[in-house]
Design a protein around this nucleic acid. Sequence first.
RNA 1: GCCAGCAUGGCGGAAUGGCAGACGCGGCGGUCUCAAAAACCGUUGAGCGCAAGCUCGUGUGGGUUCGACUCCCACUGCUGGCACCA
Length: 816
Amino acid sequence: MGALRWHRRQYHELPPMPPEYDHQAIEAKWQRRWEETGLNRPELGAAPRPYFNLMMFPYPSAEGLHVGNMYAFTGADTHGRFQRMQGLDVFEPIGFDAFGIHSENFALQVNRHPTELVAANIRNFRRQLHRLGAQFDWSRTVETTDPDYYRWTQWLFVTLWKGGLAYRARRNVKWCPRDLTVLADEQVMADGTCERCGAAVVERELEQWFLRTSNYTERLLGNLDHLDWSESTKLLQRHWIGRSEGALLDFPIDGAAPLRVFTTRADTVFGATFMVVAPDHSRTLELASGDRRAEVAKFVAEAARRRIAGIRESEGSTSGIALGRNARHPLTGDELPIYAAEYVLSGYGEGAIMAVPAHDSRDHAFALAHGLKVVPVVSGDSGPGPHMGRGTLINSRDFDGLAAPDPARELIVAAISERGLGHPKVTYRLRDWGISRQRYWGPPIPAIHCPVDGAVPVPEDQLPVLLPYIEDFRPLGTGESPLSRDPGFLHTTCPVCGGPALRETDVSDTFLDSSWYHLRYPSTDCQDAAFDPTLTRKWLPVATYIGGNEHAVLHLLYSRFVAMALHDLGYLEFEEPFTRFRAHGMIIKDGAKMSKSRGNVVVPDEYLDRFGADAFRLYLMAMGPFSEGGDFRDTGINGPYRFLVQVFRLAERVGEVAEPAELAVVRHRCIQKVSEDSPQLKYNTAIAELMKYAKRLRDHGGTIPKVSLETLALLLSPYCPHAAEELWERLGGTYSVHQQPWPQADPELLREDEVVVVVSVDGKKRDQVTVPRGTASEELERLALSSARVANFLHGRQVGRVVVVPDKQVNLVLGR
RNA sequence: GCCAGCAUGGCGGAAUGGCAGACGCGGCGGUCUCAAAAACCGUUGAGCGCAAGCUCGUGUGGGUUCGACUCCCACUGCUGGCACCA
């Protein structure tokens, strides 16, 4: 509200545009000119130095483009423009990620059909994006909802399927009771709520399509070491993949198959006093002894009910039940009672554990609650409770005295493995990617279910399987997609036997759409393949990808998986799609994330109207380090705006005069700083330098040499493309400023002949002397000691030591 | 609970072993104006002082160093990620 009021006031009270800088006319003029001359449409087939500058395509919401999008795109575009002036042929495409639950939910809410709604949203997004003045190649856009695009998303699925990387399985999956669909693990937030709508997620057993991301865990993890990506992003992926080294151990059971467990602490095996299986472990009921079976079944059913209802047991739950059956310790032969308990999860490791209450807090809590033995096997005092740290093995027979966990861990696994009861094993958190969605707004999964031949892929020449227009697209909630309502869609014939068959009615996850869009951009004109091999070889992998870390484990991981899979299947020569990735920060407002509920969303249109795209871009980039984001303030944009007006005022003072030496020096320093900071995305400090330079020119009396402003136009062009172009034209430069070579700083002019050396006493600055660069240490020391000001601070004491840092500082250390 | 990142004027931030606060916002004072806005000029970390200047100051406490916003240890707070993961 405050922002709005402020804005209204500005609108009405401000005088018309300053005559020097009519941003509306300038921006319209150049956007038209760029479009007419095809400035931003590289010859994809012929470009000698291809540079694919990618940014994350937006989801076209009904609210329109928000500042966060603008921020990301401006930063990425600035990078692309800078690279272009380094002589590279920059391809900078944009598109729209328009399928998905988000669009569909909104359509349901406002009671309109997503087909028309999304088309309108995309139109609005295109309009807003044009205003930004980015060097987008508008002749090669991608819309995931376009059959020409999702035909190839379906092709991708069929290709993965034929390559053995897609399968169908009945499995417990995350189900959102509000969106009435399955979610990928990655779409469930840490608190167990749906990423899209915030409802508590429950579990449900459904027949689903999965992609075998788990085949690639080792490579997805290992390749990270060599990727030039933001460390923060790589760390998030490493955690998500969750590699854990341990061992599989078999605990024999009399009269039954042994119970297999996963452990990372085999060194504590002598401290195992009981076993625990997950309630929904496949053998829980089998292992329950006859007289316990009914009770165990009841417990298992209750646990299942709790899980299905989405009740998350508080951590440290000790609910569990004895199965009335024992396993044998693989090394001691001791009898260990087996329990079923909710704190053991079926989805991780083997869904069963050896419990070592002396050295694991969860086992400890369970042992206390159920009166079970606690046997310490690792020495070391950590007070009451389990000791989880390092120590020395005790109560471990032949292994006593070994350091734990290492090397005891390895030696004990070896001993167990000699008896054929275990072996080392690496476990991962990452599981297969469930892609089925029981919703309407997505590409139909191209599969046909035939009573004779089972599930068969739709033949490639029959793609796309068009998403039918159905009036009532509300989700059913039965585990089936609304597409099952459409008999014309549902009934088909089997491509194998020609008999009657049913189509798959689920649609695929939006992240499948975005997992390969970068492959499509150079090939948008390609009608007979998802991507043209020649263009792909030329333009991919992506040179630089800039985007938010919110997609670190979703989009970015899936895209890597898809590239690897296509590589293995012979479709791509590379296996990592993004050579360089940089995560940008987030824009906040009033110290908080922008959100509709907080009412602190910034609508860019008003700022673009009033201050223009260039000032807006400049403000966003000046706000702080691009990697950190920044805090949006309504008044902040005044500075960059004034700066641009100032620059145009300077242009009116340009004349044919020689450049004085002092201006040459500041000009080359500015070139140096901006050239250094820009490629590192340190835009804020580059802009500060540009402002400093403009101020210096302003303070220069008289006529300003043309070259001073020409350089400014060049350095400014990645940041303020329209203003720089206009300035360049007024200075008589040839079109376009964006095709000019980047200026080079002359090292001769950067060299400073005189330096200021600080004289300090005990580390406190007391005086300074200006001396020629490279003045000898002895001379500096002499100058420092003879300083009259320094004498006042000696307080009669002797100078003990003198530390001289040439060209910087002399520190006089007083003796005592 | 675990793993990252961050903490500097009224505000956004700069400086990553050598002059803390670049650049910008905002504030204050002035010029112009009948007046206001815009623009321009000056000023703006805190305290003391008529002044020259001095003292203090980068979340907290310790340490290393001639010298620490910067490096190390411990803590506090915020942001993000993960979380009965065996």
